[in-house]
Structure formats: structure tokens, C-alpha cells
Nucleic acid binder design. Sequence first.
DNA 1: TATTGTTATACTCTATAACTATA
DNA 2: TATAGTTATAGAGTATAACAATA
Lengths: 152, 152
Amino acid sequence: MPSDVSATQVGELLQAAARAFSQQGLARFGEHGLSPARVRLLTTLHQRPGSRMRDLADVLGVSGRAVTPVVDALESDGLVARTADPGDRRAFRLTLTDAGLATIDRITELQHRVSEEIFGGLTPADRAQLGGLLRKFLVTVSREPCPQNPAD
Amino acid sequence: MPSDVSATQVGELLQAAARAFSQQGLARFGEHGLSPARVRLLTTLHQRPGSRMRDLADVLGVSGRAVTPVVDALESDGLVARTADPGDRRAFRLTLTDAGLATIDRITELQHRVSEEIFGGLTPADRAQLGGLLRKFLVTVSREPCPQNPAD
DNA sequence: TATTGTTATACTCTATAACTATA
DNA sequence: TATAGTTATAGAGTATAACAATA
């Protein structure tokens, strides 16, 4: 088993696994009116309360433009609120409303249920091992993504 | 219960890992004009030469409607060809052209390179273990797409 | 009647570019 | 000049529904 074949296969398996997870898991979220982009923004905001939109765009890895319509929708649904940044009048600080926090609870509960369902075929030991390897992978990836642009 | 926390965490890690892989890997494919949907169709077709569009839709897990524009684009780029199905005059058999096969080679080469890059931080043993766990996961998932397990 | 693939239409998500109002 | 966020516009990808030709 040559190692480069293994790397390619791992990549394909990772994609396939994520696809299966998305299709079963996130499709379930759709029943509750929770699209992937909204869930990602809500949970990210929950982890970083008071974030500016710019910061969220960076953390989410999308353009600033992509954040506006998602926040618009969440705001009109009463889940997040834009509040003026006292230190920078160009920026907004985003906060979760009570309804937003309740939605986070529902998301968390859904995530638990879906994860239990979809990973139910793995033993706890397998899950722990898989989690550990994925975490290790993420650490190595985020350490050297493609970091040689600060020269410009 | 540590096990349900673990399941949730594994789900999050899986999503994060796939996201990192997509952003680094598939973004690289974009430089070659290869969008994810086209790559998926080409590689799937390569594995199942002569597939009908309906079969591809099923294998890819998308609606039949979603296949048409992708095939249109690939056909107009000269990578795939629609040929009449001798046994069913409603259907098309899709085949890879020579240019399509050359593109498969480029995709394969790119996948190798990207996978080696992105999984370079893992030891071969880690990769093998990760691949094995992902494969196991996929088997259990595809066996019970919608499990009814109200035990928990 | 059921199925293959198409057209028509709409939705989600994201990107680039131009604009404003600040900094 | 540079940055935060918006508007305008565009594109990929996918869904549902109605339709054609064929089974």
C-alpha cells in the first residue's frame, strides 16, 4: 500500500463521508428552516459573541459580501441583532437575541441527535479515534495552509 | 455521557476537515477550470463508463435535473459525449472523449498532489487508520440511510 | 401508466466591483 | 488611503414541476 495512494484515498473518503453527513444531517436541519449558511453563522456567532461582520466573514472563510444577506435573513427572523460598534462607527456588532439563543439550543439538540444517528454504526472507541485523527489533521492543515502572501 | 458528546464533536470535526480539504483542494482545481460538480461527474463517469444520465444522478445523489447542465457544459467543452442508448431510445449513454480521459489524468494527478500536500502532516499510519475509519463509517451509513433507532 | 431527459422557473450561496461612511 | 458594510450584478449548483418521447 503506497502512501500516496493512501493519501488520495483518504481525501476521497473524507469527501464522501462529509457528503453523507451533510445529506443526512443538514437535510434534517432544512426541515426546521435552518440552512447550512445560517446554522454556520449562528453557531460561529454563538462562539464569538459580539463579532463584527468582517470578523465573521474571515472566520467563516467567505467574502464580506456573503455575510450581509445571511445576517439580513437572520435579523428579519429575529434571531440576531445588529448593534452599533461604539469604537468604530462603520462596523456592527452582532448579537444573538433570545430567539437566537433558543435556536442555538435547537441546533445543538438536533446536532446531537443527528450525530448519534449517523455515527451510531461506529463504536465509541472508533468515534474517539476518528475524532482524534480528524483533530490532528486539522491542526496540521491550519498550521501550513498556504502562508506566503504577506509579502505584498 | 461522553459518547454523545463525542458523536457531536466527530460530526463537527468531519465538517471542518472536509471544509479545509475543499477549500485547499478543490480551490486548486478551480485554477484548471474544474468545478467540483464537473469533477464529480467526470470521475463518476470514469468509474462507470457508458452510464445513463439517470444512473449518474442516482449515484451522485442529485436530481436528474441537476445533471443536464453539467453534462451540457462538459459536452460543449468536448470532454464527454452523449450517444444514443441502443436499448432505450429515451436514454443517453455518456462516454468520456479522449480529451475527457486526458482531463481524468489531470484530475488524478492533481488529486494526488493535493492529497499529499494536505495530508502531509499525518503519518502513513495515521492516514491508513483515518481511511479505515472513514470507510467503516461510510459502510454503516450507507447500510442504514434512515435508521429508526429510538432506543436512545 | 411509468420513465428518460428536457425546458422553465426559482432558490441558496457566494464572488467581484462600485459605492458610502467612516477611519 | 484603507476599511466596514452595503448595493448591484453575476454565476454555479440544485430543486420542483410540466412536458416530450419512449417504454
